[in-house]
Each structure stands twice: as C-alpha cells, then as structure tokens.
Design a protein around this nucleic acid. Sequence first.
DNA 1: TCAAAAGTGTTAAGTTTACACCCATGA
DNA 2: TCATGGGTGTAAACTTAACACTTTTGA
Lengths: 225, 225
Amino acid sequence: MNSYYRQYPKFHVAVDCIIFGFEQGVLKVLLQKRPFEPHQGEWSLMGGFVKDNEDIDHAAQRVLHQLTGLNNIYMRQVGAFGTVSRDSGSRVISIAYFALLDIDRVNKDLHHEYSAYWEDMNHLPPLLFDHHEMIQGALKKLRGMISHLPVGFQLLPTYFTLTQLQMLYEAILGEKIDKRNFRKRVNEMAFIEKTGEVDRVCSKRGAALYQFNTSAYQQEPFFKL
Amino acid sequence: MNSYYRQYPKFHVAVDCIIFGFEQGVLKVLLQKRPFEPHQGEWSLMGGFVKDNEDIDHAAQRVLHQLTGLNNIYMRQVGAFGTVSRDSGSRVISIAYFALLDIDRVNKDLHHEYSAYWEDMNHLPPLLFDHHEMIQGALKKLRGMISHLPVGFQLLPTYFTLTQLQMLYEAILGEKIDKRNFRKRVNEMAFIEKTGEVDRVCSKRGAALYQFNTSAYQQEPFFKL
DNA sequence: TCAAAAGTGTTAAGTTTACACCCATGA
DNA sequence: TCATGGGTGTAAACTTAACACTTTTGA
C-alpha cells in the first residue's frame, strides 16, 4: 500500500439492498429478520459486507443473489449512508442499492432460508438503523426514473396487461392515473408491443398481453409518461 | 467492536468534492494539482479521507472548508465510487459530493496554497482516476435539481440580475433559454424579489438587482422553471 | 343476468414556444 | 451617436386533464 494512505483509518463497508417487487397492485420490499447480533430478529434490509477485491456494485449483486438466486438483476445505487453511529455494532459505512425484479421469479424456499418476506411498502414495520431512510431514498429515486426510463418492466413478468402496468405506475407514484390517458400514452410508445396473447386469469373478458421490446426502445431512449 | 463484524475487511474511505462556481457566464469547477504520490501533480478533485468518529457528510464539509475557508456550504452527495482499482495507490472507496458556492466568497490565497484553480466545465483537463465520472454525475444531479429547487442561488451573490440568473441556468442546463419566457416565469416566483437596487457594473443602462427570499420560498417549496 | 374488468375519443383548459422592438446609458 | 445590455406582450402550437359508456364472459 502507498505510504501516504497508511496513516488514515479504515472502515467496514457494507451494502444494503432495497429489493422491490410488485404483486396484486401493491409495491413490496423484501425484508428479513436480522440473523445475527446486535439486534438479531429485527426487521432489516438484506445486506452484507464488501469484500477485498470486490467492486461495491458487485457486492450488491452478490447479496441479492444469495437471497434470491437471481443474477443480472436491475440494480442502481441509492447512495452512501455514513453517520458515525448508524450501526450500533460498530462503525459501518453502508451503500444502499435498490433492485427491481419480477416477484414470481424468486424461489420461495431460498428466501425462507433467510427469513425473508415481502412486505407492503405502504405498511412497513419498524426497521433497523437507518434502513427506513434507505427505502425512502430508493423510492424517491425510482419515482424520479419511472416516468422517463422503462424500468417498470423489470418489476413485471415478460407478458403483462395494461391494467397491470397502470397499477404498477400508480403504486410507484402513489397516485391514481386516468385509464384512457394512460393507455393513449402507452400506445404511442413503440417499445411496448401487443403480443396477440390474451390473459384470462385476472379478467373474465380477457386482457391483451403486452411485452417490452428492448431493441425498439434503443430507437427512442426517453419518454414522458 | 461486535464480534460478528470482526471477520470482515476494512477499507479506506474518502470523500471527493466537486466544487461548482459560476463566473462570467461559465460554470466552473475547482480543481487541484494533487499534492502527494501517486500521481502527484495531476489534476484532481479536492478530496480527503474520512476520519474515525466523523460522519461522511461532515468529512465533505471539512475538506471543502480546508480549501475555501467556508462553512455551511450547500453540499449534496453524488454517490459512492467503489471499483476495486479506481485508486492506483490502494483500495479506496470514495464518496463524491458536490458543493455550490459563490465564487467571489472564496479567498484566493487559501486556494492557491492548495494549487487549486477554477476550471471551465466545458474545457476540463484530463483528471485523475474516476474524477471525471464523478463530475459528470454531479452535473447530472445538479441539472435534475435546478428546475425544481432553488439551488441556483447558492452559486450567485446575494444580489443578482436576471441576466446573470438566466446565464446561470443556461450554463447548467447547457442550452439557450428565451429571455422573455425566462423573465415571465421568474416573475411568477414570489421568492425572487426585486430589491430596488440597480447594478451598473455589467450594463450601461443599469439592471435591476434581485434577491432570493428563503422564507417566501417556504410557502411554495417547488416550482417548474 | 349480473358483476367485473377491458376497451375506447373528444373537448376544454392550460402550458409552452416563438418571436422583435424600444430604452437608457457610458464611451 | 452608437454600441451594449435591459426590458417588455401576444398569438399559435402543443400538451394535459377531465370525462362515461359499451363489451365480453364466468360465476
């Protein structure tokens, strides 16, 4: 190591993951009962310490993989949380990441191993340390993105109905959207394709299934919802 | 320290400051010639290591204070940069912050001590490590904020003309704004007050001086430029 | 037959954009 | 007197918001 650096202190650095899912019209977060002391058994985000020779982004992907078995999940950094006493166990600087994934892709057994449960964003239990603040930061960032970038699709299955898509936007933005205006705007987006398939699970009449077309999105990489 | 934590590695954690200023219609960043090895003499952001018993936000304020002598400056976190080899001296995880300040408040001697110079954002020299990426991240965040939050005022003196304000917005957003439309919108903002004073330095005719009214802003805490 | 969700257009209101000339002053 | 930057209003284009009924089908 460079000698100038040596005089300075070192810190534990962790990542904490805000894992968003969407189910039955409700935005959810995967929380766990903390498996070690201090505060064992309290609700917390899934986290882990950064390793030597590991990029911090990779650490976040690793923690997410451990819990869900999934790779290549859409994750973005929320920011670093580093007040002195945020973690009562020791000084830990933690970098929060949020992940968006299709809740149905998560193996239920895997996350039961970790005592992890999907909790409704609108009814969160009290959380460890500054984890609530991390979740609010993640939600704020997600809200800022959702109307301009096609990130919502990460939370839905490959095929989805327009009603599902609208409920997702409503859940994230926390406000009702006019159905006709919403569909009008979605119709103008070339990267949302009607598939010809029909879903009869959620509705008697049957709803057209759509999919997100990544390559069509490359053509017009921004939109306004 | 908690025993569970002990098994995990620790890291140097630094803060790097993107210090924005505004002068002669141009957005500038305060850069320094790095004063220690490795890469001594290369252009870099002003940074420093986080100390024990110091919040990371405080570390950023401290570094800024060292360089400028100023306290209570508007700073926001850009994010954590933590690839393994980002710093060739050692593994360092760095948290970037941007600061907005009135360039005229900076004591020229203080920052000459640190070989620090205001550089035009549009003509940046090659920079150390990932510092260019940090600056782009800061600019992106600033652009996202400027049209909804009154942060621009941080970059101007207490009294400013509408032409100055417009040039500031143009410099940050990187696009021309129509003068009449701009003034129309500014006029609708109750928290930008005409002072009655006139500036005769920049124009022969004299331009009305305005000021930002913090308490009027509390009434309507968002706007659309 | 009825409850539940899907699907579909138009109009009014509001917002945004484009645009050109006169004014006051110091050099 | 002229060059420089300060200051001002309107109309057209566009975007957004509000709004209600018909369709299909499984229970």
